[in-house]
Simulated assay, not measured.
Amino acid sequence: MPFFSIIIPTYNRARLLERTLASVFTQEFTDYEVLVVDDGSTDDTEDVLARHSGRVRVLRQQNQGQGVARNLAIQHAVGTYAVFLDSDDLWFPWTLSTYLQAIDMYVSPSVVMGTVASFGREEELASVSQEPFRAWAFTDYLASAPEPFIRTACVIAVRLEALRRVGGFTARRIASEDHDLLFRLGTEPGFVWMQAPIVVGYRQHDHSSSRSLEQSHQGLRFQLEQEQGGHYPGGASRRRDRLTLILRGVRHVTRWLTEHGRPDLAMDLYRRSLGAHLEVPRWRYLLGFPPWMMAASLRHLRR
């Protein structure tokens, strides 16, 4: 059995997928399997995957979104840890060995999260080097709530048994489905955040799923609803940790929505999170966001 199951969902990214796979095949640590889920692609994805026959396990489904695609791979994976990689992102040769170092050092934590370097052109990653290992360990994911680092599924390794225990990803087509998963993994024992070295090159382009305004709104709305319905673990004693993480996302997304011309969606999230923000409380945001939103909306209209 391989130690890592590398899970790559893809949809109509044949050219980028080729580069992503190339970054996997240069890994220093080689005890892994690669599962690519073709989420109903209509481009040359099938041809790309055929060229890597024998090195990649290919799963196919009708187009249902990243969450369902990842869940299909989780069902078929046989590794001890699942590692998620988006089909437009890149790894460095030390990526898997760095995850392994954290797993060994901190005695098999449930979740390990790394750090990304954003790029538009691949040449920009030339300056990224393998810095000395630095990491922070927590009793579980929720305990990391005070730390404001970037959290996303493209930089996590998760014990496969824990993934299956919490049911994997939501099937909804929303942004931040990875944050929802992390909340459901929130009390699984052991969480490590690796500050260095950087382990993922995160490609920024117009087709990145995180850039969908409505899906971003729906993702945060879903998290608020899940919290309100008591669907996340930890009970009342961990509510502040959960709210710290959820509301940090709300504040970021409401500003982003406003700056991109959707103050209606921003205000909807503001209203839905009002009670939670009062509970924490976050007075600066509560009092400052409405007038800031109005001013930002006027600036957007004048462009």
Rank of each mutant, 00 (worst) to 15 (best):
T170K: 07
E214N: 11
P197K: 06
L301V: 12
R271P: 02
L301S: 13
Q64P: 03
R251A: 10
T115L: 10
G65W: 01
R57I: 12
H52F: 10
W292P: 01
D47A: 14
W94M: 02
D180R: 05
V128R: 13
M105I: 13
W283S: 15
N71A: 09
R282Q: 13
G40W: 03
Q101H: 13
R165S: 12
A14P: 00
D180S: 14
A153Y: 10
T187C: 15
A50S: 13
R164L: 06
S209H: 09
G120A: 11
W193Q: 10
Y232I: 06
V250A: 07
V48I: 08
R134F: 12
L265N: 01
G288W: 06
N71C: 11
R272C: 11
T152M: 12
Q218D: 14
M105W: 10
G40N: 03
I103P: 05
G229W: 09
R242I: 10
D88W: 00
V36Q: 02
F138Y: 14
M1Y: 12
P132C: 01
A295N: 10
F4N: 04
L278M: 13
T45F: 01
P263V: 06
V192C: 07
D264H: 12
A276I: 08
V68G: 04
Q215D: 11
L286E: 03
L16I: 02
V37D: 03
P9H: 04
L287A: 09
A117W: 12
H277N: 15
Q64Y: 11
V199I: 13
T10L: 00
Q62L: 10
H207T: 10
T95A: 05
V68N: 04
R271H: 15
Q204W: 15
L274V: 09
G261Y: 00
I6H: 02
L125Q: 04
V58Y: 02
R173V: 00
R121K: 13
R184K: 13
E28G: 08
L16K: 08
R172A: 12
G167T: 04
M194K: 15
R303P: 00
V253H: 11
A171Q: 07
H260N: 14
L96G: 03
F183D: 03
A102Y: 00
L17V: 03
R70Y: 05
G65S: 00
G79Y: 01
Q62F: 13
L286A: 04
P148H: 07
